[in-house]
Simulated scan of single mutants.
Amino acid sequence: MTGIQGFVQRSGQVLSRCRGLAAGVAASLALSGCGVANHMIYKTTGDVMEGFARKHTVPYVLESSDLAMSCAMSEATSPLLMSFGRVTTNPDQLAVMLYLTAGGCMDEQAREFELDSLMAMRALEAEVAEDAMIQKKRAYALAAQRYFQAWKHHNTFYGNPDESECPDFDTDMDEFIYMAGLLSGLQALNAEIQSTSAIGVPKNVGSIVSRATSCLNNDKWWGAPMALRATVWAMIPGALPQGENAFERLAAADLQGEEAGVRLSHVFHALAAMNKGDDEMLRGVIRQHADSIKATPSNEEWRMVDAMATQLIVAISDRMWVENTGHRTPLGKLGSFWDEEPEAAEVMSLDDLL
């Protein structure tokens, strides 16, 4: 009996261990199944959100002129949308717009720090001026990193412009984002130079972008591709092709942009004039922009692009005003300058009242 009882007891222990093992295996399989299910849910969610953002959010934002709202959105949502690249296809095309816009946020901050520095220098506050310049360089360094991210995502999605043929664009939005990616490359290089840091932006980005603009329809995009190309010609020694005139091309692009209500070419023209050191030309471009936005409303589909152009023109004007007067461009005075004769006030004849 004792032997039988021992056998039964041992058998019960074995069965108990087997049941425990089976339960563990079952739980493991169940958890594994949950993991697979969760992965599929995450993937589907990521695909839906990326598709919605590309087809609806980006066009919606482009129709808005509220740059601050666009800036806040890109900085707040970029980590969320880009994190779905861990469970599904990386949203490279969407990332171009997200990082380009987020880079613009820091670019704007850097310009504000520069104005602070200029004001402090006029007030002979050397330490305040130096601190503002340090903050400016830090902001430009972060801007360069963001722009460079946009450029890398652009190259991943469309192919490196220096190594591949022009892509086939399925939609106008595909072509626009391609142009935005080219702009991000130039912005990355410019911000890196302004930051005096080494971010790793290739120094031949300008020439690469210049060649890649030939993939874009110049008439469709308000003359901006030619303006971008002509700016590179004007700013990089030896880049100007024989028989071309960069500033004539920029002037022609300006007219296209003004007619379309998307005046991005004015920004390129102003940058080229600044690089040349031509103050009269720079003032002329600013006046032209100010007159144009009064005469022609922004294109409804591309309000944000036109608003961005105006913001950059105002920033250039503000820098000129601060350097010479200690304050920014007065409200309603874009296109006018501190050293110009004020318009003669209208004088009412008292004789007419008698």
Results as ranks from 00 to 15, higher is better:
R229W: 05
E259D: 11
L271G: 02
R249H: 10
L250G: 01
E258W: 04
D254S: 13
G261H: 03
L250A: 09
A234L: 02
F268Y: 14
A251Q: 14
A251T: 12
L240Q: 13
R249Y: 08
A273R: 10
P237R: 06
Q242A: 13
R263E: 01
N245M: 09
D278F: 14
H266Y: 13
A246H: 00
R229F: 02
Q242C: 02
R249I: 03
A260W: 01
A251Y: 04
P241Q: 08
N275W: 13
T231H: 12
Q256R: 11
A230Q: 00
W233F: 15
G277E: 11
M274S: 09
H266L: 11
L271W: 11
T231R: 13
L255N: 07
S265N: 05
P237T: 06
Q256L: 15
R249T: 06
G257W: 02
R229T: 09
A272I: 01
G257I: 04
G238L: 07
A260S: 15
Q256G: 10
S265C: 10
G261T: 07
K276P: 00
A239C: 10
L250Y: 03
A246K: 00
G277Y: 07
H266Q: 09
A239M: 07
H266D: 15
W233H: 10
L240H: 02
A252N: 13
L255A: 15
A239T: 03
M274W: 00
A260I: 05
D254W: 10
A246F: 00
E244G: 02
L264F: 10
I236E: 14
I236R: 10
A251I: 08
A239P: 03
F268G: 05
L255W: 04
L240Y: 00
M274E: 15
F268D: 03
L264M: 11
L271N: 09
S265E: 09
R229C: 06
P241V: 03
F268H: 03
D254A: 08
D278P: 09
V262G: 01
W233T: 05
K276L: 15
L250K: 07
A273P: 00
A239R: 07
E259G: 02
S265R: 03
L255S: 07
L264G: 13
L255F: 06
H269Y: 12
F268E: 12
L255T: 13
W233K: 01
A251G: 04
A234P: 05
A252D: 13
W233R: 02
A272L: 04
A234G: 08
G238V: 13
Q256N: 14
L240C: 11
